[in-house]
Amino acid sequence: MLALVIGLVIFLGVHSLRMLAPAWREQQVQRLGLMPWKGLYSLVALIGLVLIIWGYGQARLAPTWLWVPPVWTRHLAALLTIPAFILLVAAYLPGSKLKARVGHPMLLGVKFWALAHLIANGTLADLLLFGGFLVWATAAYVSNRRRDRLAGLVPASGQLSRDAAVVVVGLVTWVIFALWLHLWLIGRAPFGG
């Protein structure tokens, strides 16, 4: 469990620098240069991610149950992950009205993903992992939207055809992940027994 906690602190910490220490972050970018900063940032984030994955895997071997979620929560979680995938695609497919409206679809998608998994899982490791991501994504979303407003950022209006592409790609990705990749990558089938 310690590796999971350390990984979360490292991964979410490095992803919170712009929110919690923007002046320090900017000093480091100026001191190191943008590309070396990005390389160091990526390396630290990767170390945190590896610790999260390893620590969560270890915690699943001897889980500490806080509650036993009813079976129906898996179905609710599956529904909540649909907008998570659509928002993830909206973050990377430019020109959609959805991205223009939401502003930071990746963070909103993480919130849906984390909430879905909190509902369907009841161990201490789940609470730490998904709860940590939910708290971080909520704080980051609020911070980024405030920063956008203060900067006077006005997003482009977007095109409806791009929204259609976002939804289709998001749904197809969700189906592939839910039916095949989740079991292969995570070791559990969302719709399995």
Rank of each mutant, 00 (worst) to 15 (best):
L76F: 07
L79D: 14
L40T: 12
A114E: 06
W65Q: 13
H117E: 00
V135I: 05
L185M: 11
V142H: 11
W72L: 09
S161E: 15
R25P: 05
G122S: 05
L183K: 14
L134C: 05
E26Y: 11
A77I: 04
G170I: 08
V167C: 13
P155V: 03
L153H: 11
D126K: 00
D163P: 11
I176C: 05
A90P: 10
W65Y: 09
A140W: 03
W67V: 08
F11P: 10
L88R: 06
Q159L: 13
A90S: 12
A100G: 12
G158V: 02
V110T: 14
I47A: 11
A45F: 06
V168M: 14
H104G: 07
L107Q: 05
A78F: 14
L181W: 06
L115K: 03
F177G: 03
P70A: 08
L49Y: 02
L4W: 00
V5P: 14
L49N: 01
H75D: 15
M35W: 10
R147S: 06
K38P: 15
V71W: 07
D148I: 03
G109S: 03
G95H: 10
V5D: 15
Y41N: 02
L87T: 08
G95N: 09
L124I: 08
L66K: 10
S161K: 15
V50C: 10
G158C: 07
G33C: 09
W180P: 13
V89P: 01
F191I: 10
W136S: 02
I176G: 00
V71Y: 07
F177I: 01
A120Q: 04
G7M: 00
A45G: 08
F112C: 02
F130S: 04
L17N: 03
Q58E: 15
D148F: 03
P94K: 09
R60C: 12
K38Y: 11
P63M: 00
L107M: 08
L179W: 13
W184F: 09
G57R: 06
L185Y: 12
T64E: 13
G152T: 04
V5T: 15
P190K: 06
L98S: 02
I52L: 02
S161W: 12
L98M: 01
V167T: 06
A164P: 11
R60V: 00
R145Q: 10
L61Y: 09
G158R: 06
L4R: 01
Y141A: 07
G57Y: 03
R147E: 08
S143M: 00
L181A: 10
L17D: 05
P190W: 05
A62V: 14
L88E: 09
D126S: 06
S157L: 15
V166F: 01
G7L: 00
T73Y: 08
V135G: 02
H117L: 05
L98C: 02
W180F: 13
